[in-house]
């Protein structure tokens, strides 16, 4: 009984982390139709920046803010320096579908290699800003701590804030228009390039938040070779695809679903199957609903 409760709680927190990464991927996909594999590298870089800030100022909260801002800046920079150039050169042919994926994979390698060369010997780790010791009820310790609370809260806040922006402001409308019909949007007076860059910046910020929250939630260590970030990317992507790639709520639902399924597999089935089951969940969802859980049809019409 108690194990069941803890499994659910574990699923929710890890799901929340996947959701953050999924949100970042969805933001880029929505604004530029690119699946951004460099997201893992951007998150890693932002987290390293956060780590440096902690070294200087000894405050996680300042570091979190700086990392998020830096993440946004890195995202924007990648769009301005690479993506614009990429899109100005190739817009059709079979390569159009693959080129952005390849470009972002290349960027991921560049960021990783760069960090490896300059910071490979730095032993970096980030301590949790609030306690990670679980709450206790009637003698049992829950797999839920102030830190997990912070993580889940951050995800909900981010999702709501971004959804509000997207639904209620012109920025949201412009973002959608730029992604779906850039030419028409341009004619309508939308500054398409600027808006797309904004999408990349928002995504970079979300990815930075994911990195800064996951690092102390895991074992706290930070390394250019860290497996955590690769898996974060893979599971974040799977979560985003489950959610339909178009909607922020979809990303969160996808993340939570994946987190819960994996937690149950880990607790009740077998640790060796966790990766293949992630695949099976994904393909099951996609066979039933080829464009994800949260109706992309509505999205596409918009």
């Amino acid at each position: 009984m108690f194990q069941l409760l803890n499994t659910i709680l574990i699923g929710i927190t890890s799901g929340a982390i996947y959701s953050l990464m999924a949100i970042a991927l969805v933001l880029v996909w929505r604004s530029t139709r690119v699946v951004n594999f460099a997201q893992a590298g951007q998150a890693l870089l932002s987290t390293y920046i956060g780590f440096e800030v902690i070294q200087r100022f000894d405050s996680y909260w300042i570091a979190l803010i700086v990392a998020i801002v830096a993440g946004a800046a890195v995202g924007a920079l990648i769009d301005v320096l690479f993506m614009r150039f990429l899109f100005s050169r190739n817009t059709q042919g079979p390569i159009a579908g693959v080129a952005p994926i390849i470009a972002t994979l290349g960027l991921l390698g560049l960021i990783r290699g760069g960090i490896g060369i300059f910071l490979g010997n730095t032993e970096a780790s980030i301590r949790p800003p609030v306690s990670n010791v679980g709450f206790t009820i009637s003698g049992h310790t829950l797999a839920f701590s102030p830190l997990k609370f912070l993580i889940v809260g951050a995800v909900i806040f981010l999702m709501l804030a971004l959804s509000l922006i997207f639904q209620r402001t012109n920025i949201g409308l412009a973002l959608r228009a730029s992604a779906y019909a850039p030419e028409i949007a341009r004619l309508a007076g939308v500054r398409v390039d600027g808006i797309r860059t904004l999408g990349w910046a928002l995504a970079g910020a979300a990815g930075a938040a994911a990195g800064m929250l996951q690092t102390p939630n895991g074992d706290g260590g930070l390394s250019p070779d860290s497996l955590d970030f690769s898996l974060l990317l893979v599971f974040g992507f799977i979560a985003a695809v489950i959610g339909g790639l178009e909607s922020l709520i979809g990303a969160v639902v996808g993340g939570l679903l994946l987190g819960l399924v994996l937690a149950f597999v880990l607790t009740y089935v077998s640790g060796s199957l966790v990766f293949i089951i992630a695949f099976m969940v994904l393909i099951l969802v996609l066979l039933l609903r080829p464009s994800g859980l949260i109706g992309a049809k509505r999205g596409r019409r918009a």
Binding site: Q3, N6, D228, L266, S270, S272
Partner: peptide, 22 residues
């Protein structure tokens, strides 16, 4: 038992401990 690499999956270690404690 845990699968190689799966230790890096978020939340995995908590499931080990929950099982050991149970």
């Amino acid at each position: 038992p845990y699968a190689p690499l799966s230790q890096a999956v978020a939340g995995t270690s908590a499931t080990w401990i929950t099982k050991l404690a149970a």
